[in-house]
Amino acid sequence: MFDWIIKLADWLVYNVLHLEQGKHLSNALHFFIYDTIKILLLLLVVIFLMGIVNSYFPVEKVRNFLSRHKLYGFEYLIASLFGVVTPFCSCSSVPLFIGFVRGGIPLGVTFAFLITSPLVNEVAIGLFIGLFGLKITLIYVISGVILGMTAGIILSKFKLERFLTPWVKEILANAEKESNTFEAENTPFSKRLPIIWAEVLKILKGVVPYVIVGIAIGGLMHGYIPEGFFEKYMRKDNLFAVPLATLLAVPMYSNASGVLPVVQVLVSKGIPLGTAIAFMMGVVGLSLPEGMLLKKVMTIKLIGIFFGVVTLCIILSGYLFNIIL
């Protein structure tokens, strides 16, 4: 499927730049050109497809569905699944949270959505397919859904309502099942398309610099770190590797698109995949700045519990992957 990119990279490196085949520099450049084009194309496709889904599946629809239907325990799974198809910008987490609370959706279910939505987003999926292939992408997505669901269920056991800020408690007291029906916008596809496309370009523009820098760094490391280098330090049976990787990852957020290409190289040099996935989930799913935004609606204690439970779940899934993969 990507043969033509290899040919294009061949042509650019050997014919246009007249570099000799098999040399270190030409190999690195070839790798860089191939990876960059492939990943940017995949990102374009995935972001575009998600944009279409999201245009017909706005978050209001999700809220109304969860608010109006009795789901007999499945609401955590469904909220988590919705999180996959409804990406949101972290700056919207507060209005989103309030919107869910106002619709009478239990806190645990809201958390399930809030965890999965950033964890499994269009940029992460595009990068994952490009860097790790379809199988690992699927594993990442499915474990992201399960993780959001599990953490949501655990969080629901804590009786967290008491840790909300006073004005949110007031909203909670006045919460009602969504009665106004969702006004379905009957915008035809031809009118949605330019809007979706504009959004795709905006997202791409935001991540392209990070992706390119990430691939460049990855390419350099690829050449200089010997094969199996990390196996010495980060063996699967090293119990501290997974928690350490996760804790390192939480403060990194904005550079997720730059970090993933580097992680891919680390995996190829011997870091166990479970440890790497835990690291990536920490990078993509949890961010301290986002946590601080939530201060408007939650007490520090609740933010702490929220982050603690998610971190714990990420660590557990890291161990799990190292056992089964």
């Binding site: 706005p58 978050v59 209001e60 809220r63 949101f88 910008c89 700056c91 919207s92 507060v94 209005p95 989103l96 309030i98 919107g99 106002r102 004005w167 809007i195 959004e199 905006k202 408007k296």
Partner: peptide, 27 residues
């Protein structure tokens, strides 16, 4: 944020024209 929530939106930014929400959740 409390004023924003009066408009019952769930994603920012939003553009409100003459008290009617015209755009929500995107530029």
């Amino acid at each position: 944020i409390m004023d924003i929530m009066q408009y019952n939106i769930m994603a920012t930014p939003a553009v409100v024209i003459d008290e009617k929400v015209a755009i929500k959740g995107r530029v």
